[in-house]
Simulated assay, not measured.
Amino acid sequence: MQNRPLLIYLHGFLSSPQSTKCQLLRKWLAEAHPSIVYCAPQISPYPAIAAHSLSGLVESFVKSGECGPIGLVGSSMGGFWASYLAERYRLPAVVVNPAVHPSHFMPNYLGQTLTPYSGGAQEYRLTPADVDTMRQLEESLPHPLAARYWLLAQRGDETLDCREAEDFYRGQRQTLEDGGDHSFQGFARYCAPIIEFLFNP
């Protein structure tokens, strides 16, 4: 990687690196900032596995001694994982319509056979132990937060209440827009400012 900046994109619950925002940012970076390395891992819906694999990913980059500054972008559930990694490794993060307390909505999926929105053959079934693990991960985050964040949220989000995110990231940079939806309409407008925030503090 020759000390090139690294951007890690973290997708939402049951989503994938094929999601619209993930692919949009990948394409934009390839054209506007080809020097930035882009990494978008597939994230397990099982919180213990996700926490272990994502931590291992960041640590592998850090320990290699070859990558430059690292920035995080997380959408929805990926916003929680971005915050988890940002606090653990003191990294800047942009969180887009983030899930603040995933353990609150995970019980709705108990007992169901879950498949990724993007398709694929894998199936998942969450257990109460998974909810407990997520709750413990949430409680591990410090208050106030110690890392540097930019919250991007739209009040028209039909899935998550942006007021929770507004409160959780209080004291951090925030951009709250009226209207929109959970996918965050007009995300392309923020590609350049996101890079500025992450890599030119």
Score class of each variant (00 low, 15 high):
Gln42Asn: 09
Val95Ser: 07
Lys63Glu: 14
Phe13Glu: 00
Arg163Lys: 14
Ala153Lys: 06
Leu7Tyr: 12
Tyr117Trp: 13
Thr115Glu: 10
Pro102Phe: 03
Gly180Pro: 02
Pro34Glu: 08
Ala51Tyr: 01
Gln185Ala: 13
Ala51Phe: 02
Gln174Tyr: 06
Asn3Cys: 03
Ala129Ser: 09
Ile70Tyr: 05
Asn108Thr: 12
Phe80Thr: 01
Ala50Gly: 05
Lys27Arg: 10
Pro41His: 10
Pro142Leu: 09
Cys191Arg: 06
Val37Tyr: 04
Pro144His: 04
Ile195Arg: 04
Phe13Lys: 01
Val62His: 04
Ser75Gly: 09
Pro92Ala: 00
Ile43Tyr: 06
Ile194Val: 15
Ala40Lys: 01
Glu177Asp: 10
Leu160Arg: 05
Glu164Gly: 04
Leu57Asp: 07
Arg135Tyr: 03
Ser76Tyr: 03
Leu6Gly: 05
Ile49Ala: 10
Glu139Arg: 14
Glu139Met: 12
Arg189Ala: 12
Arg173Lys: 07
Tyr109Val: 02
Asp181Asn: 15
Trp150Gln: 10
Ala153Ile: 08
Ser103Tyr: 12
Gly65Glu: 12
Val73Arg: 00
Cys191Tyr: 13
Glu59Ser: 08
Arg155Ala: 14
Gly12Glu: 05
Lys21Ser: 08
Glu196Lys: 15
Val94Asp: 02
Arg125Cys: 09
Gly78Val: 13
Leu24Ile: 08
Leu141Gly: 11
Gly71Ser: 07
Arg4Cys: 12
Pro47Ile: 02
Gly156Ile: 08
Val62Asn: 00
Leu152Pro: 04
Thr20Met: 15
Glu158Ser: 10
Gln172Lys: 07
Ala48Met: 11
Leu24Tyr: 06
Val62Glu: 07
Ala48Glu: 15
Leu25His: 01
Cys22Ile: 09
Phe61Ala: 13
Met134Gly: 07
Cys22Ala: 15
Ala188Ile: 14
Arg26Asp: 09
Leu29Asn: 04
Arg88Lys: 08
Ala129Val: 02
Glu31Pro: 00
Val95Pro: 08
Glu123Arg: 13
Tyr190Val: 11
Ala93Pro: 01
Arg4Gly: 08
Cys67Ala: 14
Ala50Thr: 07
Glu123Ser: 14
Phe61Cys: 14
Leu114Asp: 06
Gly171Pro: 12
Ser53Glu: 13
Pro116Ile: 07
Pro144Asp: 06
Tyr149Glu: 00
His11Gly: 02
Cys162Ile: 12
Ala146Met: 00
Trp81Lys: 09
Leu114Glu: 05
Ala40Gly: 05
Ser16Glu: 09
Ala188Tyr: 12
Ala82Arg: 02
Ala147Glu: 04
Asn108His: 15
Arg4Val: 07
Leu152Val: 05
Ser44Phe: 08
